[in-house]
Amino acid sequence: MAWKFDKPLYSLADDSQNDAATHVWEGESLGGISEDNNRLPRPVIMLLGLTIVTAFLITFPLWGARPNAEIYAEYVQMMDSPAVQAISGDEAKMEYLVSNVKDTSLKSFQERHPLTMDDLRMIKDQVIELQGQGADLGEYSVIGAKVVLANFEGNLITDPVTGKTRPQAKQPWWDKGYTIDVFYVLYFCIAVLIVIKRLPHYSWKPDHSIAH
């Protein structure tokens, strides 16, 4: 298992290993099947690169993640106001809430995760209780009628409610899953590169007439 590192992108095997490999390659018939030694075509390499980049980019934004309680905080705050109480019909009330929120930074999330007055009534008390405890509503997911701490594991923070240290339940910019993926893909690329560079260089073309 000798290794050669002078031209690692050309070959990692020495001449005697390459000779042995080419001898076996050309000299034996695998059930009447032979193999060529072509390189990966450049457009395919580009496609693979594009796939890896796309894999990270398309999964990074959390489209499809659950709504957090912060999105509905202003609805909860307004829902018992005289202006809303004066409106008859739940649909009209909800329309009023949606069109009268002041904090426009959450507008796109509110549009993506609409809810009814009945939904809002079910989470109202839980949102108010969390606000009373000083909790960060952005850390809480709304799942049906329940408001629960989200499953994100971000930077370590001191919990405003319990005072204990815990990972922040918000999507961090460095997400642990993506971080593992970066190394995982890197290790894979290095391992496959080593495997392929231990083969005879792709400029060598096997003669299939020898074994057949």
Partner: peptide, 17 residues
């Protein structure tokens, strides 16, 4: 855990490799 879903989701796209 959301990080596990993120990990799996990237790997899921990489089945294209």
């Amino acid at each position: 855990p959301e990080w596990l879903k993120s990990f799996a989701s990237v790997e899921g796209v990489l089945i294209l490799v």
